[in-house]
Amino acid sequence: MTSEADLPVIDLTRDPAPQLPAVDRALREAGFLLVTGHGVGPGLRAAIRETARTFFHLPAAVKESYSVRVGGRGWLGPGAEANGYAEGTATPPDLKESLSFAAEEPIGDPVVDAEWFLPNTWPAEVPELKPLLDTYLAQMKELSDRVLDVLGVALGEERDFFTRHTGHPTFGFNVNWYPGRERTGEPEPGQFRIGPHTDFGTVTVLDREAGKGGLQVFTEAGGWQDAPYDPAAFTVNIGDLMAGWTGGRWRSGRHRVLPPPADAPAEELMSLVYFYECTPGTTINGIESHAYLRGQLDAIRAD
């Protein structure tokens, strides 16, 4: 039986100072922590899931009209992505489908706008999804900046050490659907709902559902362990650019999502995953942030 990782819960409504040692320890060891006191209501998240589930249960021919490759805005169908590729692991494609969205408010630079700030695609079959996500994504940006301010202080820097670089950031947002085995079939050897990888950017804010085929995190001390679940909390992890920003003090959180379990083959889960980045043109330890992001997105294409 897999053990559960020891991750702290950080309450954003409390004075952050006493919580900072736990933040630092968690990001040194695992790159993950849990966040409560975020102010994002459960009703909104439930409504997004219900609406997205309607889309994912549409016939494949309908969804195909919204099909895109990794990094696009639309539907990523089965076999589109293999996250293990990002760390050089030759895994089978991930067992999931995604609806993907991203930042779309132009920055004013035609070249940057054409790559990073394009209009999103909104499925006509679920018109209620757009207003729900407009609200949610605005709350995710606010929450991500609050988390980054805490991280700046935990690092021993000014509060705005990171957020001074998020004046006009990019972001990616996936509604990840993990269907049961009746749709995916028997997993191949080494196949996961999401293969082992680290995220690429600054912070990821994840709203999860509990399940046997759920999230695991990796640490040197504990190996692969189940991520603790708290329905009131968001799971937050840092990515490669944040790890580089700290000079390697904090680790990019390595993680995976287990395949549909044999003893619960009908298990169906859905995650809301917000990948927060910095303003295009930000250079981190000599690395141009968005050149790195584009390279990693290209790397995980399985189609």
Rank of each mutant, 00 (worst) to 15 (best):
residue 205 V to Y: 06
residue 133 L to D: 02
residue 195 G to M: 03
residue 198 T to K: 04
residue 90 A to T: 12
residue 20 L to S: 14
residue 11 D to F: 08
residue 38 H to E: 03
residue 278 C to T: 07
residue 272 L to S: 09
residue 219 T to Y: 12
residue 110 P to H: 12
residue 146 R to V: 02
residue 251 R to F: 05
residue 202 T to W: 09
residue 65 S to G: 14
residue 176 N to Q: 03
residue 124 A to E: 15
residue 190 G to E: 11
residue 7 L to D: 00
residue 60 A to F: 10
residue 144 S to A: 15
residue 151 L to D: 04
residue 48 I to S: 04
residue 116 W to Q: 10
residue 279 T to N: 01
residue 63 K to L: 01
residue 134 D to C: 05
residue 141 K to W: 07
residue 49 R to Q: 03
residue 98 S to N: 15
residue 8 P to N: 06
residue 73 R to M: 05
residue 29 E to C: 10
residue 267 E to Y: 14
residue 191 Q to G: 12
residue 243 A to L: 05
residue 6 D to C: 11
residue 301 R to L: 10
residue 195 G to N: 10
residue 89 T to N: 06
residue 33 L to A: 06
residue 41 G to Y: 00
residue 262 A to I: 01
residue 136 Y to H: 14
residue 68 V to C: 07
residue 129 L to D: 06
residue 10 I to W: 02
residue 246 T to Y: 03
residue 46 A to E: 13
residue 104 E to K: 08
residue 200 F to P: 06
residue 201 G to F: 10
residue 270 M to S: 01
residue 273 V to Y: 00
residue 148 L to K: 01
residue 3 S to F: 12
residue 154 A to E: 03
residue 42 P to Q: 00
residue 95 L to W: 14
residue 62 V to G: 01
residue 225 Q to C: 15
residue 39 G to A: 08
residue 241 L to N: 05
residue 246 T to K: 05
residue 293 L to T: 00
residue 6 D to W: 02
residue 199 D to A: 08
residue 68 V to Y: 02
residue 259 P to V: 09
residue 243 A to I: 09
residue 69 R to P: 04
residue 230 D to H: 10
residue 22 A to W: 00
residue 272 L to T: 00
residue 301 R to C: 07
residue 234 F to N: 02
residue 202 T to C: 00
residue 160 D to V: 07
residue 226 D to M: 06
residue 167 G to E: 05
residue 222 G to W: 09
residue 283 T to W: 09
residue 155 L to R: 14
residue 41 G to E: 13
residue 90 A to F: 12
residue 104 E to Y: 06
residue 242 M to S: 09
residue 238 I to Y: 05
residue 45 R to I: 01
residue 212 K to R: 15
residue 73 R to F: 07
residue 104 E to R: 06
residue 102 A to W: 05
residue 129 L to Y: 03
residue 123 P to L: 14
residue 7 L to T: 00
residue 193 R to W: 03
residue 37 G to I: 15
residue 294 R to P: 05
residue 27 L to M: 11
residue 131 P to R: 04
residue 204 T to M: 03
residue 11 D to Y: 06
residue 93 P to K: 08
residue 191 Q to E: 13
residue 155 L to F: 15
residue 164 R to V: 15
residue 38 H to M: 03
residue 13 T to R: 13
residue 189 P to S: 12
residue 243 A to G: 12
residue 291 A to N: 10
residue 51 T to K: 01
residue 170 T to A: 05
residue 95 L to F: 13
residue 286 G to H: 02
residue 70 V to S: 05
residue 146 R to H: 12
residue 272 L to H: 09
residue 164 R to Q: 15
residue 41 G to L: 04
residue 76 L to D: 07
residue 87 E to Y: 10
residue 33 L to E: 02
residue 38 H to Y: 01
residue 39 G to D: 07
residue 129 L to W: 04
residue 252 S to M: 01
residue 34 L to S: 11
residue 6 D to H: 12
residue 66 Y to E: 10
residue 86 A to H: 07
residue 262 A to Y: 12
residue 232 A to N: 11
residue 67 S to F: 03
residue 261 P to M: 13
residue 89 T to C: 00
residue 283 T to K: 11
residue 204 T to G: 07
residue 8 P to A: 03
residue 101 F to D: 01
residue 286 G to F: 05
residue 110 P to T: 14
residue 167 G to Q: 09
residue 130 K to N: 09
residue 54 T to D: 12
residue 299 A to E: 11
residue 57 H to M: 14
residue 129 L to V: 04
residue 262 A to D: 15
residue 274 Y to R: 03
residue 121 T to C: 11
residue 135 T to G: 01
residue 301 R to S: 04
residue 261 P to A: 13
